[in-house]
């Protein structure tokens, strides 16, 4: 095992997959010479050269669709969108083209693209550099949506995403970039579509992803002292989400909290909640409680009170416990 930061785990995943498969390339704004705006591709340009690590004009729509064309011709692009907010500039590429091309053209080819993007607050970057928009993409058939909560997960999930023949929206979290964790020296993968039980508990289940996984674990630790046993389920893949693991956990705890950083209304928590209501209503001993940001754009100076965290998760758990 070795210590590594989240951002370097991303780099290692890309580097190993580029070494493994010459069809894998990285493209985006400042990913080459500059090593990526957050440093995720530091050293890759020097290692693989301008052919495989490509600096683009500031043209999200152009290079994202370019990647779709390249993927349909047998390449395996990794695209970096500098901030998740900027994906709005290429929604045609992602939603009308990438998500549909394989299906719409009668399964004539695969569409192996990874679109990486960091989301979330933490930098006081304001309304256009801090959004969490994963639910939009989980709503579009044809895409997979992946979120990673720590260095170990981000590396294993990113490598699986690069090897996947479907388009993957790979969402990083800016506050996690500096997070340290342990990873094995050797090659490993984490399968897409499988949730991970990050903490075993018996009283209440918290279904969550990305940064809120870590906050939920902290909340669980604190509540343990008060005699509440919390199970934390990290979805890791938002679409397709692992119903079996979530349902089994609720079958055990009979209480559910769903937690994400995104705006609560219409967030992925709403889908989990609705599905549990449909399938497991009789198992529930309490209403389902959701944790999410308020329904306003993320606030520049009030970011700390805007972004949900440990206290919000604790409150929701206490509500579920009655």
């Amino acid at each position: 095992m070795k210590d590594i930061r989240y951002i370097f785990a991303i780099k290692e995943a890309m580097q190993e997959e580029m070494e493994r498969d010459e069809n894998v390339f990285l493209m985006g704004e400042d990913v080459g010479l500059a090593g990526g705006s957050f440093g995720a591709s530091k050293g890759l340009f020097e290692k693989f050269g301008e052919k495989r690590v490509i600096d683009t004009p500031i043209s999200e729509a152009g290079f994202t669709s370019l990647a779709a064309g390249a993927a349909s011709c047998g390449l395996r692009p990794i695209i970096e969108i500098m901030f998740m907010d900027f994906v709005t500039c290429c929604m045609d590429s992602v939603v009308n083209q990438i998500a549909k091309m394989r299906y719409m053209f009668g399964n004539q080819y695969a569409m192996p693209i990874v679109v990486r993007m960091p989301e979330g607050g933490g930098q006081n970057a304001g309304p256009q550099h801090s959004q969490c928009l994963e639910a939009w993409f989980a709503h579009v058939p044809g895409l997979k949506v992946v979120m990673a909560a720590n260095p170990y997960d981000v590396k294993g999930l990113l490598k699986s995403s690069i090897r996947d023949d479907n388009p993957v929206i790979f969402i990083e979290n800016k506050t996690l970039h500096a997070m340290k964790g342990q990873i094995p020296e050797e090659d490993y993968l984490i399968p897409l579509g499988k949730a991970d039980i990050k903490r075993v508990g018996s009283d209440v289940t918290v279904v969550t992803a990305s940064r809120l996984v870590n906050d939920s674990l902290k909340a669980a630790d604190q509540l343990e002292k008060e005699g509440i046993s919390v199970e934390v389920v990290d979805l890791m893949t938002i679409q397709p989400w692992d119903r079996e693991t979530v349902f089994n956990s609720i079958g055990k705890t009979h209480r559910l909290v769903v937690a994400h950083e995104a705006v609560k209304q219409f967030g992925f928590g709403a889908e989990i909640s609705a599905a549990v209501n449909e399938e497991l209503f009789d198992e529930l001993d309490a209403p389902i409680f959701r944790v999410g940001a308020p329904f306003v754009p993320i606030h520049y100076s009030l970011e700390k009170s805007y972004v949900p965290g440990v206290e919000d998760v604790k409150k929701a758990i206490m509500a579920a416990m009655g």
């Binding site: 669709s65 779709a68 083209q97």
Partner: peptide, 27 residues
């Protein structure tokens, strides 16, 4: 579309297909 003949597909979004073809040139 018929990829076996290089017909990458007609596109219903005006202009949307242009950068996709650029991607084929890139490949």
């Amino acid at each position: 579309a018929d990829l076996s003949k290089g017909v990458m597909g007609a596109n219903g979004i005006v202009g949307g297909g242009i950068p996709i073809v650029v991607g084929a040139g890139f490949a």
